[in-house]
């Protein structure tokens, strides 16, 4: 199986409460925050690796994992670490975040798919900077491929995937045949969420994503990383344009109450919430 994984780097999501909006509302200032891979994209990579291996002997890839990121030179750090973790090849599409919206990323990915011809394009369900939640679904439509959005479990079958999707009120199971677009949800990296046909059903993964062993980090420098220009893939303009940004309304810490009686008294008489 050949899988194309889309990786975005975002300003450190665990410090997103440190983003600042200048008084003129002209931008979201992430200065001082570290760049990290979008957590869902880390999960997408882990999922792609699980689908292309036998869980018990995971040094050998059964197929190919190609990672792609749209962004400036610095995103190569993210791509290199994906190569160290197990991906075979990387592509960086030179551009800035300002040149993109979800539609353009999808349009450019669709163009890349023409030459890469993967069986699966694997994405995160959302990038946690823009929380836009759209690239995978748009891409699936542009390619006229089935979409397995918000996948929480995946089983490889002979010519497709059995997918468990967490939806409102329960879990929906669908089957897609290759080629397909998959976007992954949080619980995709639980120990029993993803199985390739090579992995024994009794096998249990460690919870979460794997880390690159040190020698692999050295070897990753020798793995191929190609660069393309955005214009090679699309010359369209973004359709979403931000005119300004605002800080959210501030919420102040209230009071600590000493016991249950004090809490109930406050809820009844002060907040009038009971």
């Amino acid at each position: 199986m050949k899988i194309l994984v889309a990786l975005k780097r975002v300003a450190d999501p665990d410090n997103a409460n440190k983003v600042k909006i200048p008084a003129d509302g002209s931008k979201v200032d992430t200065a001082g925050l570290e760049w990290k891979p979008n957590p869902f994209d880390d999960y997408a990579l882990e999922t792609a690796l699980r689908l292309t291996e036998d869980g018990k002997s995971n040094k050998v890839r059964k197929g190919e994992v190609v990672v792609v990121s749209f962004g400036p030179k610095e995103v190569e750090t993210t791509l290199r670490s994906a190569l160290a973790t197990g991906a075979d090849r990387a592509i960086r599409v030179e551009c800035t975040d300002e040149q993109l919206d979800g539609f353009l990323v999808a349009r450019a990915l669709a163009k890349l798919v023409e030459t890469e011809k993967p069986d699966v394009v694997m994405l995160g369900k959302q990038a946690v900077d823009g929380d836009s939640n759209q690239v995978g679904q748009i891409l699936a439509e542009l390619l006229d491929w089935p979409q397995a959005a918000f996948a929480a479990t995946l089983r490889e079958e002979s010519a497709g995937l059995l997918v468990g999707r967490e939806v409102d009120g329960g879990v929906l199971e669908i089957r897609v045949s290759f080629p397909a677009v998959v976007t992954v949800d949080l619980r995709i990296v639980a120990p029993r969420s993803v199985y390739s046909t090579a992995t024994d059903a009794a096998f249990k993964y460690n919870d979460g994503v794997r880390f690159a062993p040190l020698p692999a980090i050295m070897q990753a420098r020798k793995k191929p990383l190609d660069t393309k220009s955005l214009a090679e893939l699309t010359t369209e303009k973004p359709r979403i344009r931000y005119v300004r940004y605002e800080a959210p309304p501030a919420r102040k810490a209230g009071t600590k109450v000493v016991d249950v009686d004090a809490l109930l008294d406050k809820l009844k008489n002060e907040a009038k919430a009971l």
Binding site: A16, N17, Y242
Partner: peptide, 19 residues
């Protein structure tokens, strides 16, 4: 113009859609 939360609700963006 559409207002939407970003960065886990730590910023709001106001956007227009050109299509």
């Amino acid at each position: 113009q559409y207002k939407r939360p970003m960065f886990a609700g730590n910023a709001f963006g106001i956007c227009v859609i050109d299509s």
